[in-house]
Design a binder for these strands. Structure first.
Length: 295
DNA sequence: AGTTGTCAAGCTAGT
DNA sequence: ACTAGCTTGACAACT
């Protein structure tokens, strides 16, 4: 079991997701930001290694505007060696790596342009992991997408569009149950038809479920991961008290996390903590994991 | 130096 | 009709 946090480290004073405004696009800006982001990514990974946080989500902003038509800069070639170096560091230390394209990536959209833009964006994410020469256990997670007033049709459209994706994307793509539209059960229907692994988000499952107990839900999602996909990835968060449903906690609720670890003790899976104070909560979580899993 | 409106992209539910 | 929330933070133009 590996523990991690997404994209941003708040204590080492550098960001691997530095960007600029579209109107300021230039080769110079690209070069500067990518340089900064790759260097910082390395520093974050070094921090994580020291603190035994071996699961990390790389920011989608690593390469700004990578899938935008404006981007003609050949970043793959120019930073080939840097990607390779980071990849080697990741492999030597057995980090688990994921990426999470944002809400605009919708392969079940009714609009062909949105689907095409989404595919370009997925290609960019996979390209980053390919350049690092990571195997197919490094994953790219997305949600199923929109409902567009007709859930079944939208699921069918997801399946149809998924099937036409390139192997480059298929080998890394996993789907996550979300908190409002597509539950674990919906994801399982899609898995039946496509074999796409399901990344279980325990907090989303709390928000939207079909009455399954956490343990059972987790087990079902774990079973969708094949040998060469690696250990199942999961997301974990808590509801922030006093905020509306679905708002992520500022700081981990350790009691709840402990309970979750106890309940799921018999399974092996990796946990991404989607908590707003990032590595601060992750540091507390890793202590709990070491304590409870050693018992 | 600090503040604040705004940022490529979409969808949904709540106000 | 508008906005928050989604990984929500960071850029950049303004005091």
């Amino acid at each position: 079991m590996k523990i991690g946090y997404p994209c941003i480290n708040t204590s080492i004073g550098c960001t691997a997701n530095s960007t600029f405004r579209l109107r300021n696009y230039s080769e110079e800006n690209m070069r500067e930001k990518i340089n900064n982001n790759l260097e910082c990514l390395k520093r974050i990974l070094e921090y994580n290694l020291k603190n035994e946080l071996l699961f990390f989500r790389i920011s989608s902003d690593l390469i700004p505007f990578a899938s935008h038509p404006i981007c003609t800069f050949k970043w793959e070639q120019e930073f080939k060696e840097e990607f390779k170096d980071i990849g080697e560091f990741i492999k030597e230390n057995e980090f688990r790596i994921s990426m999470h394209p944002d809400q605009f990536v919708l392969i079940n959209s009714k609009d062909k342009r949105i689907v095409n833009n989404s595919i370009r964006e997925l290609e960019y994410h996979c390209k980053v992991l390919d350049l690092m020469k990571l195997d197919r256990t490094a994953k790219v997670q997305i949600h199923v997408g929109g409902i567009y007033g007709e859930k079944e049709e939208s699921i069918d459209r997801f399946i149809k569009n998924y099937n036409s994706l390139s192997d480059m994307i298929k080998k890394r793509l996993v789907i996550e149950n979300d908190d409002r539209n597509f539950s674990l059960k919906d994801c399982l229907i899609i898995h039946e038809k496509t074999k796409v692994p399901i990344l279980f988000d325990s907090f989303h499952h709390e928000c939207l479920n079909n009455g399954e107990e956490v343990k059972h839900a987790l087990k079902e999602s774990i079973e969708t991961w094949k040998e060469n996909d690696g250990i199942a990835m999961t997301d974990y968060s808590n509801q922030e008290k006093g905020e509306r449903k679905g708002v992520h906690a500022k700081h981990i609720y350790l009691e709840k996390f402990r309970k979750y670890l106890q309940e799921t003790k018999e399974f092996n899976f990796d946990i991404m903590l989607e908590i707003k104070d990032k590595e601060k909560s992750a540091l507390e979580a890793i202590k709990e994991v070491k304590r409870i899993r050693k018992e």
